[in-house]
Simulated assay, not measured.
Amino acid sequence: MNNQLKVYVGYDSREDIAWQVCRLSLSRHASISVEIYALRQETVRELGLYTRPQDKGAATEFSLTRFLVPYIAAHEGWTVFVDCDFLFTTDIARLLESLDPAKAAYVVQHDYVPRSASKMDGQVQTTYPRKNWSSFMVFNGAHPAIRALTPEVVNTQSPAYLHRLSWVEDKDLGALELGWNFLEGEYDKPEQVPHAIHYTNGGPWFPNCQNVDFADLWIAERDRYERTLEAA
């Protein structure tokens, strides 16, 4: 299998700073060459890959476009999709060490009930099977199940089918350790900093989320990003 790693970060025009900080945290810690791309709905529409009607009720602009990532990557190695509201604190190369090439995809297999009825940015907190499994996905581009995840499937199947990962058999779905998609606010703050912190209920880029767990780490990374702008 090709050892190159491609990472696609869900892009939402309302949260550009979240994408910028996620990208920087990924690249800054990486010990391997990682290609990082913003997954923009506008772009995949222009390419004719995403034809679903605009969904004003979607929580993000990349709610369903994330499932196009393996097709867009056109890559037989491992490809990662991650929501923009993540902060990486460790080398993503560590993620690759435990992946079995016989598996089609890997996710953190959360089993939880949201602690709040609403997110801190005012959006309604929904509960459904396999919630947040699709917020961080590692795709094996060489696996038949991933090759079958075509634009036609993404554009015609229900959101539930896609987000519950019904397109892959359970036996072909690998489990990542919780630290790769640590849901801030949904799990108690651990003593050790997780590999990837997911500010799923709202992160420090929102005025009312300055005191969430690990806010200081995200703010420090944002400050690093802003210093790169000053130096440019």
Rank of each mutant, 00 (worst) to 15 (best):
M1D: 13
N2R: 14
V9M: 05
Y11H: 08
Y11A: 08
W19T: 09
W19G: 03
V21Y: 14
V21L: 08
C22V: 00
C22M: 06
C22A: 13
S27R: 14
I32K: 14
I36K: 10
L39M: 09
T43K: 14
T43S: 13
E46V: 02
E46A: 15
T51Y: 08
P53V: 10
P53E: 11
A58T: 04
R66P: 00
R66V: 01
V69K: 05
P70Q: 05
P70L: 09
P70S: 07
A74P: 00
H75N: 14
T79G: 06
L87F: 09
T90N: 13
D91P: 03
R94E: 14
S98W: 07
L99D: 11
A102Q: 12
A105K: 01
H110D: 03
P114F: 02
P114Q: 11
A117P: 05
K119Y: 11
M120G: 06
M120N: 13
G122R: 07
Q125C: 09
T127I: 10
K131C: 11
S134V: 08
S135N: 14
M137T: 13
N140R: 06
N140P: 05
G141P: 03
A145L: 08
E152R: 06
V154T: 05
S158N: 09
S166R: 15
S166D: 12
E169D: 15
G174E: 04
G179H: 07
W180N: 08
F182P: 00
E184N: 15
G185D: 09
Y187E: 01
D188F: 07
D188C: 10
K189Y: 04
Q192E: 15
H195D: 05
Y199P: 07
N201A: 13
G202I: 01
W205E: 10
F206P: 00
F206L: 13
C209M: 08
A215D: 07
R222W: 12
R224F: 10
E226W: 00
T228Q: 04
T228R: 07
A232T: 06
